[in-house]
Design a protein around this nucleic acid. Structure first.
Lengths: 108, 108
DNA sequence: AAAATATATAAGTAAATGATTATATATAAG
DNA sequence: CTTATATATAATCATTTACTTATATATTTT
């Protein structure tokens, strides 16, 4: 893996809010609205963090109606595998439990 | 390992110049003057990068007369072990070969 | 002791970053 | 078709960062 990709992924991971986003996604898909509650920052701020993680190839997205579900990509680089192993999963933030569309959960 | 240490070490590693410093030190001790040539930045800039790596607990130093030799700490955190594995060693920058005191090498 | 050398610290600056508010887009619901 | 909802983008701003030059400290050499 070349140094520039290493740098890009390290930069993407080197932020406490983005670490928390990754910690959330260790349990599965999460939608944007959940992250807003978890991080206590504005929706656009969350959106921008997610974009940075996506551009580094760490996460991917899936559109579900109006919502967007984000998750870790399946084949992480060796670098990200190692980093993700060290991040403790964060519960209570995935769509299944407290998503914006609780009571009408459309995960299958 | 708690998230704040993870963040600190990721931030310390998430810079191309500091990645190169780490790549140099994979081969052993390096002194500051060597880094100046390798990175093409000023001596104070190098000094500041090294301080950041030191404050994150990634490297340590040893004083040798007027010089200071820097090296990776022996017991890296699991996080840093993983990251360092992905950084390719960079040759031609350690004290043994082109140090400021070539011809009077005092490594033992 | 004075001069030279290696490194660190301080002060200042430009660029990058992470937040905000405002707005745009897209889908869903009435 | 209008309104509401979820997310993204744009514009702006404050903070942090990475550099520079200037200076301080410590050691060695003369």
């Amino acid at each position: 893996m070349e140094n520039t990709l290493i740098e890009k992924q390290l930069k993407a991971a080197a932020d406490l809010n983005r670490i928390k986003l990754l910690a959330c996604m260790k349990n599965g898909e999460v939608c944007v609205c959940d992250f807003v509650d978890v991080l206590g920052i504005s929706q656009p701020a969350v959106s921008q963090h997610l974009r940075k993680l996506k551009e580094a190839g760490i996460i991917t997205e899936r559109k579900v109606g109006t919502w967007k579900h984000y998750r870790l990509v399946e084949d992480q680089t060796p670098l990200m595998k190692g980093i993700l192993e060290q991040i403790q999963p964060l519960n209570g933030c995935n769509c299944g439990t407290n998503c914006c569309h609780v009571g009408g959960n459309d995960n299958e």
